[in-house]
């Protein structure tokens, strides 16, 4: 999948699922939600991801009050991408889910779980928040950076340690190899560079 995204962003776009044929039902806080509640983003590992980024405050707990999604996971395109034996493992059926801080880039490789089709999976979580003091007590910076994903869609991202490290890695790779890595976000000033 990475190879396709890296060499042929257009092919990756074509293979990416559309909202209508991927998320068949959405409910949030007991009410219906739709396409407009999601942000589409391309990802080097997976062709397309949908982010539910609702900055709502919730006071009720339990499955009825959270986010409830139903996915259609059958393959709708008839292309056999396993042309190189099992080198391209993109024929598994399922979804990968990451629950993360709003407006941050999810780490779909290290901080996400895979959900199998055919099951009703429920996740409950508890959040512990550590707040750090701003200047002059600390050196935390609240600014946002403009980043692009492989579909060249610019998005405003809340900066965090993980994103900082990934941008740093991208700059290092670009400096060493003269091209960009598909798995790392691209800062604005490297927009005109090409993928490796």
């Amino acid at each position: 999948a990475q190879a396709i995204s890296q060499h042929s962003p257009k092919m990756a776009q074509y293979l990416a699922p559309k909202y209508e044929t991927f998320i068949v039902s959405c409910r949030f806080k007991g009410k219906k939600c739709n396409k407009t509640n999601f942000i589409k983003r391309m990802n080097g590992e997976y062709f397309k991801c949908f982010t539910f980024n609702n900055s709502a405050t919730i006071k009720n707990v339990g499955p009825r009050w959270g986010l409830s999604l139903t996915f259609y996971l059958d393959r709708i395109y008839g292309i056999d991408l396993n042309y190189d034996m099992d080198a391209m493992d993109i024929t598994e059926y399922g979804v990968k889910v990451s629950i993360h801080e709003p407006n941050t880039i999810p780490d779909m490789v290290n901080n996400a779980i895979t959900i199998s089709p055919g099951y009703n999976t429920k996740m409950a979580l508890r959040q512990t928040v550590f707040g750090k003091m701003e200047h002059p007590w600390g050196q935390c910076d609240k600014f946002r950076v403009k980043l692009v994903d492989i579909a060249y869609e610019a998005t405003n991202i809340a900066y965090n340690q993980d994103t900082c490290l990934k941008i740093c890695q991208q700059r290092y790779i670009q400096g060493k190899c003269g091209c960009l890595n598909i798995m790392r976000p691209v800062p604005n000033d490297l927009l005109n560079e090409t993928y490796c």
Binding site: F47, F50, G94, V95, H100
Partner: peptide
């Protein structure tokens, strides 16, 4: 009261 997190889903 809690702020609802962002949820990202990707087709595998």
């Amino acid at each position: 009261y809690v702020d609802f997190p962002a949820v990202t889903v990707c087709r595998t």
